[in-house]
Design a binder for these strands. Structure first.
Length: 325
DNA sequence: GCAATTTGACCAGC
DNA sequence: GCTGGTCAAATTGC
C-alpha cells in the first residue's frame, strides 16, 4: 500500500510538473491552454482521487465496525443462522425484531437512469420508505442470494422528484454470489447516449471521491454501456409512482411501472460533492457526450479498477494533447 | 406450498 | 426527536 501511494504521489507530482512545463515553456493559444487546463486538472484529480481512497481511514472504520458487530452478535445472535435455535417461537422472534446491525454508508455507486431494467443480478425487495422532501418512496433491495450465498449487495431505487421519469439507483456492497442465470451489466440504449450524460460515484465514508464530471469515454467497457437486446424488466414488482403519461400497470404484480422505453437509459452517473444522504439529484448538465459500446461483464471490476481506467484515460488525453502541440 | 412483496414497527445515527 | 435503513409478520401470486 505504501509503495502504491508513493508511486501515485510521484505520478501526481510529475503530472503537475508537466503542466507547469507546458504552461511556462510553450506559447499556447487560448484554446490550447484551456484544453491543457482541463486535461491536467483531470489528471491531477485522478491522482488525488486514488490517493484519497488509499488514504481513507478504512482500518479504523473496520475496527469500529468489527467492535459493533461483535457487540451486535452478543446481543443479537446471528439472525440468519439462529432463526431456528433461539427459542423458536413467534414471541422470541418478535422480541428480536429490530435487533440488527445498521449499515454505515460504505462505498456506494450511484446511477441515474431513465428506466428500470435488469442489471444482471437478482434482487429481492425488503423495504420501502417514504423519504423526506421527496414525492416518491425509496425502495430497498438486497441480493436474492443473501441467505444462500451470504451476498451482501444492496440496492436502493428512488424516483427523482424533480424529474419523475428518472430514477436514482444506489448500489452498496459487492456481489459475492455466483448467479449463472443472470447476465451481468447494466443496460443502456445506444440511441440515447449521444445526448446522455454520465456521472459515476464511488463513495466512501465521508470521502469525496471527485468533484467534477468525468468523461464517459473513460469507461469504454463499463457496465453502463451495453446494447439494447439484453433488456429484461427486472423492476416490474417495484411499486413506483410514475407520472400518468409515462406509466402503466403491471398485471403481474399490480405495480406501476415506467413505460418510457424498455431500456435502461442511464443518463448520469455522478461524482456527488456531498454524501449520499445529503446530495440532491445528480447534475448531469456538465458531462460530455457518451460513446456507446458493447455489453460485457464487469462484476469483477471494483472501485480501484475504475479509477485505474480513469487515471489511464486522463494520461491518454494528456498524451494526445502533447502530440498536438 | 413456496417464494416474493407489502407494510408497520423497530432501531441506529445524527 | 427526526429520519432513514432494516426486520419480519401478513399478504399476494404462481
Amino acid at each position: 500500500m505504501e509503495n502504491i501511494t508513493t508511486f501515485l504521489e510521484k505520478g501526481k507530482e510529475s503530472a503537475h510538473q508537466i503542466r507547469s512545463f507546458i504552461n511556462e515553456r510553450l506559447g499556447l493559444k487560448a484554446e490550447d491552454r484551456e484544453a491543457l487546463d482541463h486535461h491536467s486538472w483531470a489528471t491531477l484529480n485522478s491522482f488525488e482521487t486514488v490517493l484519497s481512497i488509499l488514504n481513507a481511514p478504512d482500518i479504523d472504520q473496520d475496527d469500529q465496525v468489527l467492535i459493533k458487530k461483535r457487540k451486535f452478535e452478543l446481543e443479537c445472535p446471528d439472525q440468519s443462522k439462529s432463526e431456528d435455535n433461539i427459542g423458536g417461537g413467534n414471541v422470541v422472534s418478535k422480541e428480536r425484531r429490530g435487533c440488527y446491525k445498521r449499515r454505515k454508508t460504505g462505498q456506494s455507486l450511484i446511477l441515474e437512469v431513465n428506466n428500470l431494467t435488469d442489471d444482471g443480478h437478482a434482487w429481492r425487495k425488503y423495504g420501502q420508505k417514504g423519504i423526506l422532501n421527496t414525492n416518491y418512496p425509496r425502495n430497498y433491495y438486497r441480493c436474492t442470494h443473501k441467505n444462500d450465498q451470504n451476498c451482501q449487495a444492496l440496492k436502493q431505487v428512488q424516483q427523482i422528484s424533480e424529474n419523475p421519469t428518472k430514477y436514482k439507483i444506489i448500489y452498496q456492497g459487492q456481489h459475492t454470489c455466483k448467479n449463472p442465470h443472470k447476465t451481468p451489466s447494466i443496460i443502456i440504449d445506444d440511441s440515447l447516449e449521444e445526448n446522455s450524460s454520465f456521472f459515476l460515484s464511488f463513495e466512501t465514508n465521508n470521502h469525496l471521491v471527485a468533484k467534477r464530471p468525468i468523461n464517459p469515454a473513460l469507461f469504454p467497457k463499463s457496465p453502463f454501456h451495453a446494447n439494447t437486446t439484453m433488456v429484461k424488466q427486472e423492476y416490474a414488482p417495484i411499486k413506483v409512482e410514475s407520472p400518468p403519461s409515462a406509466t402503466t400497470h403491471d398485471p403481474h404484480s399490480g405495480a406501476t411501472i415506467n413505460q418510457n422505453s424498455p431500456t435502461s437509459d442511464i443518463t448520469s452517473i455522478g461524482f456527488p460533492s456531498t454524501p449520499v444522504s445529503e446530495q440532491g439529484d445528480v447534475n448531469s448538465s456538465l458531462a460530455p457526450e457518451v460513446n456507446a459500446s458493447t455489453a460485457e461483464s464487469y462484476d469483477d471490476m471494483d472501485e480501484n479498477d475504475w479509477i485505474k481506467l480513469l487515471t489511464m484515460d486522463q494520461f491518454a488525453s494528456l498524451d494526445g494533447l502533447l502530440d498536438n502541440l
